[in-house]
Structure formats: C-alpha cells, structure tokens
Amino acid sequence: MLRAIGFLGFIFLYIPLILLMAYSFNAGDRASLWVGFSTKWYFVLFENKELLKAAGISMRVAFFSATIATFLGVIAAFVLTRNKRFRGKVLIDGMVTSPLVMPEIITGFSMLILFISMQKFIGWPANRGMTTIILAHSTFCMAYVTVIIRSRLVDMDSSLEEAAQDLGAHPIFVFFQVTLPVISPAIVAGWLLAFTLSLDDAVIVQFTSGAGSTTLPAKIYSQVRQGVTPEYNALATLIIVIVGIAIITAMQIMNRTQRMHHV
C-alpha cells in the first residue's frame, strides 16, 4: 500500500514535466491540444530575438549573483561556524537564514523600497536594471549558499584545521590550503544552487528590474499568465534538458569527491 502510493508519487513528479516537453513537438499552436508531431516551434524560438536577449541578461545576472553570493556566503559560513561567540552573532545568524523563509514577494517589495529610498538619499542607483537585480539576487542566494557551506563546515573534522595550524601554518594559510580545498565541493554546489535560483526567479525581478532589463523568467511569466504557445514549451524543454544534464554531471562529480573526503 505504502509502496504503491510512493511509486505513484514518483510518476506524479514526472508526468507533468514529460507532458510539458512532449507538447513542445506539437504541430498545432495551442500548448495543450495535440495536433501532430513537428519541430517547428524550436525554429520559431531561435528567431525570437527578444527571448534570446532576455536569456542573455538572465545568464549574466545569474553568473554575477551566484559569484557574489558564494563569495559572501563562504565568509559568512566560516565566521558563523569557526567563532564560538561574538557580539551580534544572533543578529547575523538570523539575517543569514531569514531569506530562506521570506516570501519572495516581500523580499522583492522591500528591495524596491530600498532602491527608491537610496536613490532619494544618495542618488544611487539612478534607475533599476541589471545592477539592482544582481544586488537583490545576491542577497537572497547568499542565504542558500551559507546554509550549504555551513553544514559542510560543521561536518568537517575541525582537527584538520588544527593539524595544519599545529604544523606551523598561519591561520590565513590554513584557510586557503586546508579549509577551502576540503569544502570545495560544497562551494561548487552552493554556486550552482545560487545560479539556478537566480535563473529561476520571476518574482523579485518584478520589483527590481527596469526598462530593457527583463530577464527570461520575467518574460516567460508574463507570457504564461496570458496562456501559452508550444514555443514556450520548446523553451522549457531546452532549459530542463540543459539544467538536468548539468545537475546530473555536477552531482556525479560531487559524489566522487565526497567519497574521497569522507575517509
């Protein structure tokens, strides 16, 4: 009984995605009424200059956001795990984890208010665009990166760092020669997660993007609201396939290094 429900659950998880992909090969122009097989929507997709441009913006935003978030997240995780107690730790701890449970709509709205106020008081940012999206994405992605790296740091045998120090390495060398290499799989995982989260966000951009800086999810979102064409199924199929392959490869690499590190 339990097994049967569990098995159906897996089917439930994949049927909608498979149907979504199947309809990208629909010859008709409705996303849900099957007419016949065709690959024409993929050609239509590649001629849609606006979508390609939005995809380009999204990639750039995701790259910078993930990189900033990872940089900040590594430091935050390190400070939080390797310092026993310091003033303001509770506040920082709270600030680091809160974005995880914050409804995106509120994160987006409060970012908007921040940018409006900043513009009023210090004149920057003059208008909203890629920079403001990156600032907002870096902030909420940083929380996820911090959580991933933090749990790795907690798991990590702290005597590794002590051993390096004991052998005469200055704490800075300890960090770069021992801590960073040991947690590097988690850093890669954190960066990838931040990248996909940024690439996926359709809510926060509603508040932080400006004219000419529409990202791909924002574009998809406004289209999906109206109802959709198989062109978007084709786009979705491409995204799912690319991300799927990337994730499976990344997981395999990580599993291999993980096995090595858990001696």
């Binding site: 998880l13 849900s32 999810p217 979102y221 959709v228 799912i240 991300v243 799927g244 994730i247």
Partner: peptide
C-alpha cells in the same frame, strides 16, 4: 531515487508551475 526527487526541484520552479498549467486546460491531457 533521491536524485529523482531532487532533479525537478533544481530544474525550475516556474516551469513546474507552467507544467501543471499545461496539463489542466479544458482540452488538456
């Protein structure tokens, strides 16, 4: 099996909502 659970989570939230929308249309699957 774990990978099968996590994989859709990594692909895209928006696309998963969209997938549900596609299958629920009146003339949908």
């Amino acid at each position: 099996l774990l990978m099968l659970v996590i994989l859709p989570f990594w692909t895209s939230f928006l696309l998963r909502v969209y997938a549900i929308k596609t299958i629920l249309y009146n003339q949908g699957p």
